[in-house]
């Protein structure tokens, strides 16, 4: 009689196809879930544009009052374009509810079904997030295109093909980096029951250091106490700026040549590190996790 392991070894192609089918099924389930509450979802998507309106007026008022033509290398038009591009990047890298959802599933015990079913939890979360983003882009396409077209005069001429390719690559990497950062954060729930404060603290740092609040270049004149190293230099080596600032700065031509290549390498390295950390934390967490009852 064959063992289960032997049977599994004899059917490698079927296993691969089965895995793909599982992924597709997860994607469809998540799409249906997202579309169940369409009004809420559409409302949430459109409202994301509101904060940028205040930022545009704020910086216009700052430029008007200061008589400066540029701040940290950004003209007023550059600043508006930057916020729009940073927002576009955040549409890829932000993972609303992911960390909270993971920690909640650990706290209320619903995570245990993923421990006994032949489904990889992190894979399921990733498929779910891809579905979420797909629906989001479909809904957000019209407002995004409208706003970008309406604000086209703020943008410099479109960059060359290579820069656009680097921009697209940085966006894809920002999505994956954002996902693994937040999934790992949620898994802290294996060690602490209540992680909402930790998530909030992370969001604070993320908001400040990602360049979502203002371009990181504005930190270039802030010293760190180390000779010749500014705060912007330190932030450059953290993963946060790759989830907002970096892609926006690439499109605007603020990062070019070797600096661009180095930036992409650092972003990719952070992604690999976070995939490893996420898998490790899941492995350690499930080792100490215990669930009782149905």
């Amino acid at each position: 009689m064959r063992t289960y392991a032997e049977s599994a070894r004899l059917q490698p192609s079927y296993g691969w196809l089965s895995g793909l089918k599982s992924w597709w099924r997860m994607l469809v389930i998540c799409l249906e879930e997202r579309l169940a509450y369409r009004t809420d979802f559409a409302l949430g998507t459109v409202m994301r544009f509101l904060p940028i309106v205040t930022q545009v007026f704020l910086w216009t008022a700052v430029f008007n009052a200061s008589d400066r033509t540029d701040i940290a290398g950004y003209s007023r038009d550059n600043i508006v374009a930057y916020y729009l591009l940073a927002m576009l990047t955040r549409a890829f890298s932000s993972m609303p509810g992911l960390a909270g959802g993971v920690s909640r599933s650990i706290r209320d015990g619903s995570v245990k079904k993923y421990l006994i079913q032949p489904v990889d939890y992190v894979g399921f979360l990733l498929a779910s997030r891809i579905a979420h983003k797909l629906v989001y882009y479909i809904v957000a396409m019209i407002p995004f295109v409208s706003v970008l077209f309406f604000c086209r005069s703020y943008f410099p001429p479109a960059p060359d093909g290579l820069t656009i390719a680097a921009y697209v690559l940085s966006l894809v990497l920002s999505f994956l980096l954002g996902f693994f950062l937040e999934a790992t954060l949620g898994m802290i729930g294996f060690w602490f029951l209540e992680v909402s404060s930790i998530i909030f603290a992370y969001m604070l740092f993320q908001y400040l250091l990602s360049g979502h609040m203002f371009p990181i270049d504005m930190l270039a004149d802030i010293p760190t106490g180390m000779a010749g190293i500014s705060l912007a230099d330190v932030v450059r080596f953290l993963p946060f700026e790759y989830t907002a600032y970096f892609p926006a700065a690439v499109w605007l031509g603020k990062i070019t040549g070797w600096e661009l290549v180095t930036g992409l390498v650092i972003e990719f390295t952070w992604l690999i590190v976070m995939i490893g950390v996420c898998r490790f934390v899941w492995w350690r967490g499930t080792k100490r996790y215990s669930g009782f009852g149905g």
Binding site: D40, G44, R48, P51, T54, F57, L58, A61
Partner: peptide
Amino acid sequence: MGRNQSLYDFWFYITNFSRYPAEIY
């Protein structure tokens, strides 16, 4: 609406307008 998870978001976004002096508008 039956569900409005955007409630808190909407609150955040709309109160965002009050964070700065009216003169900027």
